[in-house]
């Protein structure tokens, strides 16, 4: 490989480059994040996510309060009001589904919950502070057998749509790659 002076010169230069690179990594490694804090994307992303969660909590606090006091109709109205500024926002859809579920308006509840999960998979995540896994799990356990039996008994496009939404939610709860 090293047949002449050019080879030896090039090999030497290569060694210098490699050594310089290693030296930079070892010597400057500890300063890297201080020099360029934007490189630590995990922290920035975590902060953005926390900000999103606390914004949602703040934005929908009146809805949650009304819901906790059992004032479901007023909570829905508050959501209608908020939807003027935040139309089709995932958390609003989730809360609407949750309230309609408590009011036993099942097809609409399922539709809004499925829409919320389509917009943001946070709601089926185990790790997310916004997770509603247990609520959705319970909904499927309670409603899927009933709706399946009903769909067998009668041909109804609306019922099929609700069933498809429930299957979608069931699939998302089952996990797998996204």
């Amino acid at each position: 490989m090293f047949k002449d002076r050019v080879d030896i010169l090039l090999a030497g230069l290569l060694l210098v480059c490699v050594a310089a690179g290693v030296a930079l990594l070892i010597g400057g490694g500890s300063q890297a994040s201080q020099l360029n804090p934007s490189l630590d994307k995990a922290i920035a992303r975590d902060m953005t996510y926390q900000a999103k969660v606390s914004f949602l909590e703040r934005l929908y606090a009146p809805v949650n309060e009304l819901q906790q006091n059992g004032k479901y109709e007023a909570a829905l109205l508050k959501l209608d009001e908020l939807s003027r500024n935040y139309p089709n926002e995932a958390h609003g859809e989730l809360l609407r589904g949750e309230i309609l579920l408590r009011m036993q308006v099942i097809p609409q509840a399922v539709e809004h919950l499925a829409k919320a999960v389509r917009l943001s998979a946070d709601y089926v995540d185990r790790q997310s502070p916004l997770s509603r896994r247990s609520l959705i799990d319970q909904l499927i356990a309670n409603q899927l057998p009933k709706l399946k039996a009903k769909a067998l008994a009668q041909e109804n496009a609306s019922l099929q749509k609700t069933l498809q939404n429930l299957y979608y939610l069931q699939g998302r709860l089952a996990g797998g790659c996204e």
């Binding site: 004032k71 109709e73 007023a74 829905l76 109205l77 508050k78 209608d80 009001e81 939807s83 003027r84 009011m103 308006v105």
Partner: peptide, 27 residues
């Protein structure tokens, strides 16, 4: 009607905080 209240709120004609809902019928 609950629907009219909803539509008026969505249209910004009234706000959710303007009224007390004293009761609502089953659907």
């Amino acid at each position: 009607p609950a629907l009219d209240l909803e539509l008026m709120t969505r249209a910004g004609k009234v706000t959710a905080d303007d009224f007390n809902i004293l009761g609502q019928s089953p659907t």
